[in-house]
Simulated scan of single mutants.
Amino acid sequence: MSALRYLTQSQVAALGGNDPQLAFDNVVETVKLMRKGEASMPAETHVNLAAPQGKVYALPARVGGGFNATGVKWTAHRPQAQDGYPMAMAMTLLNRADNGLPVALMQSGSLTATRTAAVSALALKYASPVPPRRILLLGAGVQACAHLKMLAAQFPELEQVDCWNRTPSHLDAMLDRAGSLPWPTQKLTSIEHALAQPWDTLITCTSASQPFIGPQFIQPGRMVMQTGYHEVSFEAIARADKVVVDGWGDYCNTSAKSLFQMYRADEFVKDRVAADLADLVVDNWRASPTDSVYFSSFGLNVFDIALAARVAQEAERQDVGTALPLEFALP
């Protein structure tokens, strides 16, 4: 009789699931595997919930190498939920890639935020036109918290990080949870004041459905990193000297991200993409110091499977988690 290891959110965290350096290393290794054809990410699918605007997404992927995992992230988006639980709830199911045996089932919402921040770190290290010194971080939700943690771990030499959120109390809570940071932070209450600061890198982690980053903010030596929904206008993207993406796939036909909305409006062509993650990691593509760079992070679930596989392997080594028995009728 085989068993499936179940891991809670706190166990995933204790096993290093939210570690920004480990996540960064996993992302880099997965990018290399993708270039070699040893990692893949088929198109996602979804079903509607009975609740208004609610959907559940199935996001499969396979990652070879030392990860040896195939799996699916199953995420329920519950925008109208009033039950006290998160609006997004994610579970990841893993099987071995070499023989298909079930391995683990884990709560994985924090893994998504951690891998997204790790991808941003990769882009910031390799696609930024100049070494980042002053960051403007917009948002105070799960993604913004993960990015703040990532910046502290990967860029302790920054001069300052300015932060803004539409709800100031949420911003206060994020900075309180962050604890001691290696650089000064400034809390800004006005988005106009925030954008007027002398930043070289802008990271958007909001749920805005209408753009508020216009072309005037695209300037030489600056990088605009979009991890949120629709913060950046088409005109701003068009003005950027270099457009960099984590990847380009079938999701360009459905994603609500600014870049893909622009593509579907016939105002952006794929050939304008200067680089993706593989170009940065494998081919050493770099921006010029005078470039203005726009980075669009769709969020590749192949990285979720890589991080989950590493956590599952650590759980097995430490014998952490609840063993759920699996019974199979053998001939």
Rank of each mutant, 00 (worst) to 15 (best):
V281F: 09
A256G: 12
Q82R: 15
N165Q: 14
Q313I: 09
L136S: 06
A238L: 03
L330H: 10
V12T: 04
A81K: 12
W164F: 14
S209N: 07
D266M: 00
S10H: 14
A315Q: 14
A51E: 15
T185V: 13
A287S: 10
F268A: 00
S108W: 13
A240H: 00
S180M: 02
A58R: 11
V119F: 05
P220A: 06
N68F: 13
L4Q: 04
G321T: 07
Q11T: 08
R310A: 03
L300K: 05
I218M: 10
Y85E: 13
T75R: 07
L171K: 14
A315Y: 12
N253C: 10
A61W: 11
I237T: 02
A312L: 08
Q80D: 15
D304I: 06
I237C: 11
I135F: 07
L33I: 09
A50W: 00
G100T: 14
V269N: 07
M150D: 01
Q11R: 01
A152E: 08
F234V: 10
S209C: 05
L59M: 14
V224M: 05
V161L: 03
A88R: 13
E316H: 05
M89R: 15
G299E: 09
A287F: 04
G221V: 11
V27T: 04
Q80K: 14
P182Q: 05
V63N: 06
P198L: 12
S255Y: 02
E327N: 09
Y294M: 06
S233Q: 03
P102I: 10
Y229G: 01
I203D: 06
Q21P: 00
